[in-house]
Write a protein that binds this DNA or RNA. Structure first.
Lengths: 338, 338
DNA sequence: TATCAACACGAAAACGTTTTCGTAGCATTT
DNA sequence: AAATGCTACGAAAACGTTTTCGTGTTGATA
């Protein structure tokens, strides 16, 4: 990399002080018109641009927000990034993206690196391992040190910070209600293990909707998928039961259920209705296309970024932590009869 | 954000100089054992971590690599990021991700911001608009200023830098050849407009494979999809022709073709074989699952990161620009009979 | 006793900015 | 003629590090 031109160099070349150059470039009234012209012309000619690092050190702010995600190859997370980036950009910030790969250790290290001056604040979705272990000290430390922090989607209420979440209970309720409304009686649910709160919440919504109909919850219709094992065979078990509908808490489970149903010769949606979660490409382009709870990842990203930047820029007045609940809605497609 | 503890503070509190503290923490032999112990204990207790910005300014390097992509909500690009991040991380770098949104102006601005000290080098996939306008001065400037740069996927040979590309011609050939081998005679191709080089290359591979069989290219079997128009109806026209196979240059075109075939009552793969491109979730989870050219985005990311970091760290010895061609391979699934 | 080396530490510069304060020179007012 | 004000600029500190060079003290050696 070629050395870039600096204020110092300009100052030396033009026989003035760095203060004069700095002021001239910022169009200070303290500097005479002629001197300003001379300096600006020189700076322009050599395409001077102030060095970010120096500014950041001087101003004690980086105008960068750090994002830590469990993974990125995932429609929802990349959508959220997109939303964050949009707002960040509009408000003059850049983003630095890191991944925990669902591992607690990497989450801790990443937080450490980023908070040593590289960023002004963090937006995080917590790694599964941290949630499972309930080892959240690294987050408590952030709060302790008053690092601006926004959690989204995977949150924990023991961490006192702004957060953006989906109304997962409501979403589970809506999805199940839709199935009930179109006449389904035996609705299976494919969800996550219990320590993943989003899965748990969606299950709660499901149970509420079922109970409202007066039917008792049938434990056999609830599948908790362990992602370390084979997904296909776990979901397959659900088809041993008599079911006419499936609510899956993500796209992949929904697609897998559809595959199994087809293999069993069940017609969709005539014999089996399916509702998924996350409006990704699978739901849209598979055939039949899948009715799905749309999660508004982009909006979540936008809101998270706004919360964070507000927090960063209003360091003075302590605002109590705020939680934004993004309500989701159902996009009805071919996989659930209407 | 609480003020963090600095070397200065430690020095003042312990009544020594900053040099002593710095040396002690780096375990210099110049400092007596007792003093070192004392300083380390203090630093440890207050959880001292050196400030990144200061280090970056001092060392004149950031250990950050900038990534500029046309968009992120796209399986291929997020996979590439993942690969870059892996290598970057292993080699002690962080990544700063920005998007051009396919717009030349934003590409230029982003490059400007990032190269003013924020990053040690750039990995870029060029925005469509820049390619279409052939306005690449911002890249020539980077080369001029010897900014370490690696282009991937969307490249241009007038820019003299390292690059990582897919062997699109070979991939198109392989895909078509596979269809020929399983007995297909009338193979349609759904590709992009001609200014998108990847689509053009894949078409070339297709044509080569067809010509090898002695069959003449039938222009009616070539669909150039204009993304500004309705994709479905454009692809639908292909089905007016007599076809027994389709090669689509991306997942979405492939899924759309399958949908149309199903609507027309064609059995897959018995009456129509389909091959897609990009091994994303759609191909894997739709039913039938789609035979596809896997693009190895992760590998591309890894290679790009390695090239860039090599370039950054060997600033001395000028290496001539290198191009890595990542060969793709076919993953055969249900949509093409075997 | 004078010389020298080793030890243990500090001062200062450097990275590139911005900003506060000081001041020399000149013009205006009383 | 003295006091005041303005213009136009420079010096220096600050942000947090690292590193080079210098130096005072001690102990050993000649």
């Amino acid at each position: 990399m070629k050395p870039k031109i600096t204020i110092k160099i300009i100052a030396k070349e033009l026989g003035v002080s760095t203060s004069t150059v700095s002021k001239a470039l910022r169009d200070s009234h303290e500097i005479s018109i002629e001197t300003k012209e001379r300096i600006k012309a020189y700076a322009d000619y050599y395409n001077y641009r102030p060095n970010n690092l120096a500014l950041q050190l001087r101003n004690q702010k980086t105008k960068v927000i750090g994002i830590i995600l469990p993974k990125i190859v995932h429609h929802f997370f990349s959508t959220v990034i997109s939303g964050i980036e949009k707002v960040a950009n509009e408000r003059g910030y850049n983003i630095m993206v890191c991944f925990s790969n669902e591992q607690q250790q990497k989450e801790i290290e990443t937080i450490n690196v980023l908070t040593n001056g590289s960023v002004d604040g963090l937006i995080v979705s917590i790694a599964k391992e941290s949630l499972r272990n309930k080892e959240l000290n690294h987050f408590y430390n952030l709060i302790e040190n008053e690092v601006p922090l926004v959690l989204f989607d995977r949150v924990h209420n023991s961490i006192e910070c702004d957060s953006v979440i989906v109304d997962d209970i409501g979403a589970g309720y809506k999805a199940t209600k839709h199935l009930i409304n179109i006449g389904c009686k035996n609705i299976g649910i494919i969800t996550t293990p219990e320590h993943v709160t989003v899965g748990l919440d969606r299950l709660q919504g499901y149970e509420r909707a079922i109970k409202e109909t007066g039917i008792k919850i049938d434990k056999n219709l609830i599948i908790n998928v362990d992602e370390d094992e084979d997904i296909y065979s776990q979901i397959h078990k659900l088809f041993d039961e008599k079911i006419d509908a499936v609510f899956a808490v993500n796209e992949i489970y929904a697609a897998t259920a559809i595959r199994i149903a087809k293999e069993k010769g069940m017609k969709i949606p005539e014999e089996l209705s399916v509702v998924g979660f996350t409006d990704g490409l699978i739901s849209k382009y598979s055939s039949p296309s899948i009715t799905t709870v749309v999660q508004h990842g982009f909006t979540m990203g936008e809101q998270a970024a706004d919360l964070l930047i507000d927090r960063i820029e209003n360091d003075k007045k302590e605002r109590t932590p705020q939680t934004k609940v993004i309500s989701s809605n159902l996009k009805i497609r071919e996989s659930s009869k209407s």
